[in-house]
Amino acid sequence: MRFFKIWECMMPISSDRSGAIPALTGLRFAAALMVFFSHYNIPGLNGWALRVQGSGYSGVTFFFVLSGFIIAYNYLDRFESDPIKNTYQYIVSRFARIYPLYALCIIYPWMNSGLETPLLPYLVGVQAWSSDVYFSFGINGPAWSVSVEVFLYLTFPLLIPVLSKLNVIKSRNRLLIFALFSFAAQLCLAAYFSMPGRAELTSINPDSAHRWLYRMPATRIFDFCLGIAAAIYYKRHFVATNKVQRTWSRAVTASLLLILVLMGWSKNFLSAFSWDAAYAALFTIVILGVAIDQKSKVSAAFSGKRMILLGESSFAFYLIHAILRPLYTAHPSGSLMYQVLHLAIFLLIVTCISIGLHLSIERPLQKSIKQLFSKKKSTVAVA
């Protein structure tokens, strides 16, 4: 009871917040880079540094938490007041945001693969539910996370009315319990899959932690919920003061350092905890802290125009970096300088292509689809 009284004092009610949070867009590119370097080794690294690079798969956990935060930040009010009325526009918006480029990055590599793999499960975004890791990561490996996102997007219109009914949105104490429950569920699942007999299972085993904790959409709901809880706190219960903002800024720095330590820790690397639980709460603190103190050094580093453009292009970057692998062939026999320069040029190529895809395909089609479906809805309403 004493803990909740302290929590009550720390969280005075404030007015709703709205508007863009530029640093969160920039951070998306940092997370995409983490995934990129987990797939393309930086020459000359070994030991702790090599494990940090290999642990870049944790970047997808950041994306799932961020999705919960951004969607709740933008849609909380509408779904709390009238979920049925706002679901249509929400679905159209999410579809326009991810599907055109996703479909392109599925169909093209499928055509290159010889057309033997069934296309439909990938087009409708259900491949991550498969127990076969080769099917989940088929056609375009990184696209499995979009399959998870599709599931998370569909749960949001159901989650918010339930949270509202349970008074989680308005009650600070219940919001805390909701967040703690989500994190505790992740810890319990990780502990279960760390038990002898399960911890040794490889990613190709359908009973492995990799299948159930990393790529399974149902268990990723807890990342999403942590992001939603953070957004509710930021929008409804947080009051900005210089002292509180400085505290959150320090929390962001400490969390980033701890994430780095965990990524390089040999006992955590490829463990059941590393697939999700080790990073989810820390990424939540980073996202929330960056939103709270938008003038901090971390926020400033990711808020520039170039970083925002890279962040907006990060979805394209994420989807194409594996497709473009034929353009890059590592040559370990070359000098270290040659290898580093070779990888840097390839990274530049991937980045430039992703920006081009964002500006020429992703952004125009997103706008066109929204306009098309808005007109259709207006026409039906008038009729």
Rank of each mutant, 00 (worst) to 15 (best):
Y134I: 04
Q371H: 08
A322V: 15
M11Y: 00
N242V: 12
I232V: 14
P326I: 06
Y90C: 05
H210Q: 05
G114R: 09
S113F: 02
F3G: 03
A281N: 04
K370I: 14
I13L: 08
I369D: 09
A199S: 15
A230C: 15
V162Q: 03
L50E: 12
Q89G: 15
C9A: 08
M263P: 01
Y75T: 05
I361R: 04
A199H: 10
T155E: 01
L336A: 06
A291R: 03
R94N: 07
F156H: 02
I345D: 06
L257T: 01
P217N: 11
M195H: 09
Y90N: 04
M34A: 13
D16L: 09
K297C: 06
H358K: 01
F3P: 02
T202F: 05
S255N: 00
L166E: 00
N41S: 13
A383D: 07
L119K: 13
R198L: 15
Q127R: 08
I71S: 00
G114S: 12
S130N: 15
I369G: 12
G138M: 13
L27T: 06
L104G: 09
T87Y: 02
N140F: 08
L260N: 09
L27I: 04
L159D: 02
L33Q: 06
N140L: 10
A103H: 07
V340G: 00
K376R: 14
S296H: 07
S147H: 03
L257R: 01
M34D: 05
T87S: 03
T61E: 15
V52P: 00
W7T: 07
A49R: 04
S335C: 12
R211L: 01
P43V: 12
N140G: 05
I228H: 00
L324D: 09
V252R: 00
F137P: 00
N41L: 10
W265K: 03
S182I: 06
Q245G: 10
Y328S: 08
V52W: 11
A254D: 03
I320C: 09
A185R: 01
I13H: 05
L201Q: 05
Y328E: 07
S38K: 03
Y214W: 04
V380Q: 13
I91R: 00
S266P: 08
V286L: 07
Y233G: 06
L201M: 08
L76K: 08
S93M: 06
T25D: 13
L66Y: 03
T219L: 07
S93K: 14
P332W: 06
L27Y: 12
M11K: 09
S81D: 11
G138F: 10
W265Y: 13
S130L: 14
A301G: 14
C188L: 15
G114E: 11
F79T: 10
Y90P: 03
